[in-house]
Amino acid sequence: MSGDLINALFLQILTGLQLGMIYAMIALGLTLIFGTLGVVNFAHGALYLIGAYCAVIIAGKLGFLYAVILVPLILFVIGIILERGLIQYFYDRPHTDQILVTFGLAIVAEEALKWIFGANNIPYPVPSWGQGIVMLHEYVPFLSGFVVFPKWRLILILVSLVVIGALFFLLQFTRFGLVIRSGMRDAEMVRFLGINITRRFAAVFGLGALIAGIAGVFGGPITQVSPAVGMKMLVPSFLVVVIGGMGSVAGALIAAVVLGMALSFTAEYSSIQQIIIYLVAVVVLLTRPRGLMGKKGVFE
């Protein structure tokens, strides 16, 4: 293989990873909320949006590091308030009712932000330490010549990997995670063992919102910050959840990478790029109707 081809491939993969990771952070919240509470949360894109707007304001007034700390906390609180104040009354209702109420919520958030900040994109400058490009050829031995990648996009990939790693650790290696995983498989039995699983599931909703907030802080400069971005992010993230299998965390992660790569490798053919994620969804769902790692009986 020629050096140019290796360079191009490497950049495509890196771009795909960056696209996939931002969807993954939104999709993980979506799939966790669905897997625990059984709710399809169409307001999840709006949580990303709120995260991004909060980040712009806090970064502008106090500095970026404050945004990194405060925005996830704010979103966690918003998530808990949303779950306790509204969503919990819809657990026993049909999925269509849940979709209507969360979709309605997304529209309210979008219109409210439009009312306050206007419909246009508001500037969200990357902090000075995240600006510029990284000379990848200086660090990666098999690259030749001159290969560069925007520094902020690399930071986004790293942050996503840390967030996703932390989430996996929480779910796989802590007691809280054990209870959540058990509750996802048989919530009633977990209740029979004396655990108030509903309260812990509410925390999961907050956790999903928190991750969407982190995605908003770091993804905002790339996706831009305008009221329409919420829906723009929600649709591919929702496809990620469906392709990965409703309620599956590992499935969402794999699907996010697959979609990111599909988008990256079709970037030169914009007409194909427009439809590629739907094409992938169709192919996966035709061959595996429950998604890559979906479980029997979920959403059927």
């Binding site: 007691r175 209870v179 108030n196």
Partner: peptide, 9 residues
């Protein structure tokens, strides 16, 4: 883990 879950509460 099934036994641990029974001992959380």
């Amino acid at each position: 883990e099934n036994l641990v879950v029974a001992q959380i509460a």
